[in-house]
Simulated assay, not measured.
Amino acid sequence: MNERDVCDIFCTDEKKVSRLREEVEITRGLASIFKVLADDTRIKIIYALSKEELCVCDVAGIIGSTVAAASHHLRLLKSMGLAKHRRQGKMVFYSLKDDCIQKIIATALNHNKAHKDN
């Protein structure tokens, strides 16, 4: 740690600390979503699903995996509330549950691009 990265003295703004200590509790549970997103394969799947609905076999082809592996990732995304599926005959199609996760990915891509450009 660089000496310039911390305060030279220790003091706190008790009102601010007390208020924010309570407010930050709203983030409880978010880490599990980010843990799911912290996998390159699942990010690719989410990105692909943000473009269009896909069957499990198509997802496997896109990520270069077996159908079983793709199905595993898709089930995890579904269990976290990020994806949904529908059955059509013998086919199962996946899509994003809503546009929230799509916005997170788009924001991250914009950040990544801006960071690379600097």
Rank of each mutant, 00 (worst) to 15 (best):
N2P: 01
N2L: 08
R4K: 14
V6Y: 14
V6W: 11
C7G: 09
C11G: 04
T12I: 15
T12M: 09
T12H: 01
K15D: 13
K15A: 11
K15Y: 10
S18F: 09
S18C: 08
L20W: 07
L20S: 01
R21F: 10
R28M: 06
L30G: 12
A31N: 03
F34Q: 00
A38M: 01
D39K: 04
D40F: 01
D40W: 00
T41G: 01
I43P: 00
I43D: 00
I46L: 14
A48S: 13
K51W: 01
C55F: 06
V56K: 13
V56M: 09
C57W: 07
A60F: 01
A60Q: 03
I62F: 02
G64K: 11
S65A: 15
T66P: 04
V67L: 08
A70H: 05
H72V: 11
H72I: 10
H72N: 15
H73G: 04
R75V: 04
R75G: 05
L76Y: 01
L77S: 08
L77E: 05
S79I: 03
G81W: 04
K84P: 00
K84Q: 13
R87P: 00
R87C: 03
Q88C: 05
Q88S: 12
Q88H: 09
G89W: 06
M91T: 11
Y94H: 07
L96G: 04
Q102T: 02
Q102D: 11
Q102Y: 02
K103F: 05
I104R: 02
L109E: 14
H111Y: 13
N112Y: 12
N112V: 02
N112R: 12
A114I: 13
A114D: 15
H115M: 04
H115S: 06
K116H: 13
D117Y: 00
